[in-house]
Design a protein around this nucleic acid. Structure first.
Lengths: 201, 201
DNA sequence: TAATTGTACATTGTTAACAATTAATTGCAA
DNA sequence: TTGCAATTAATTGTTAACAATGTACAATTA
């Protein structure tokens, strides 16, 4: 059964802006004008402001009182490294929680997400590929640790994915995800962790 | 020169609510009513909503569309442990950045914060003690990694500080902070890191 | 000319009314 | 009484007008 989740207006707007930022369509330091965004999405400024606050807390935007919000600059190499460390820690934790504790339905679901990744890669839809990549990891992180773990994880990933170039170079990316699911399916914890470590860099 | 920072209305409201939640005055699962909060702080619902979104992203509140916001439940022991690991990683990173790279003015500033901690401890003002504790760590994290590192760090700390009982047991807490500053002053990285590790648990 | 003050404009911050949604209550039937 | 449906009340979501703030530029002064 397909879920077709209903999304609130604000969540849809947030999704679009997240894509725009992660894809680089909105470059760092771009100023976001509330009125313009309201017109673009056909709402008033209220919901737009809500979204801007959310994205600011996710690290994608920087806000200054009475001045406005603009797209964040990429992390320094040091902070990028630290973020990778933290992300690994979180996802390794997730994998441990899932050992001997994951259903075939969930594994199938993850297979499905990887299939979509493959499609996007084949069609060279790199922004969608990135989004699906994030969706994959978000899925099993949420499975392992629920909303609390997801909230811990999400900002770290979003921030380090800004201006991320790795993807367009490699089919390897998709394969890496197959390896992760394979390892989970075999309940091979060591293999799962090493697969995660390889994938996150 | 003393800074006397001007805080926006929204930041002041956020500070009060954070205190209420971390102190336990607002218990987990308490529902927050926007209208009531607006009356309490003498504003309209607009700024209140902004704050609720912020605190939700910080992990202190849980929000449900069309239903409202309520205080989060404490983390599970597993997630508490993970949060401690992450927090250590971040603060150890901060200490490394500060080695041979911190001014006497900053060290003095940190001494001052610890003095305030001591006062709060002596007067048994435990909520203020917690706030000052967080202020101390926030100060040197911000010093080391700026806004980006602070944003990474802050939600982790806030979330793990909910229902945190350690403080009221020990003068040790204040001393631990002295040790951290001493180590930084001597540029003794190993000692600084071990001091941090002892303090975060 | 350089620095500073003043003014006009653009943008964000706040408010209060209204719409949409959810939760609670009432009334009715079995 | 219990279960369900319809209605009412309470709460959140959205909007548009207004207030406050910051920015850019022109005018003024030294």
């Amino acid at each position: 059964m397909k879920s077709n989740k209903i999304l609130s207006v604000r969540e849809q707007i947030a999704d679009v802006l997240r894509s725009d930022i992660i894809s680089g369509e909105l470059e760092p330091n771009t100023k976001l004008n509330e009125q313009q965004l309201a017109e673009r999405f056909g709402t008033s400024r209220g919901p737009i402001r809500d979204v801007l606050i959310k994205l600011t807390k996710e690290g994608l935007l920087v806000s200054k009182d009475n001045v406005g919000s603009s797209v964040s600059s990429p992390l320094t190499p040091e902070l990028q490294k630290l973020s990778i460390d933290i992300r690994r820690k979180i996802e390794e934790h997730a994998v441990k929680q899932l050992e001997n504790n994951i259903s075939e339905a969930d594994l199938a679901r993850m297979d499905g997400i990887i299939d979509r990744m493959q499609e996007h890669f084949d069609k060279e839809e790199f922004t969608d590929l990135t989004k699906t990549d994030i969706e994959f990891h978000k899925y099993f992180v949420g499975l392992a640790g629920g909303e609390d773990l997801t909230n811990l994880w999400y900002p770290v990933v979003l921030r380090m994915r800004m201006n991320y170039q790795r993807i367009r170079n490699s089919q390897t990316l998709v394969d890496e995800h197959r390896h992760i699911v394979d390892a989970l399916r075999k309940n091979d914890l060591k293999l799962a962790i090493s697969s995660i470590r390889k994938n996150i860099k």
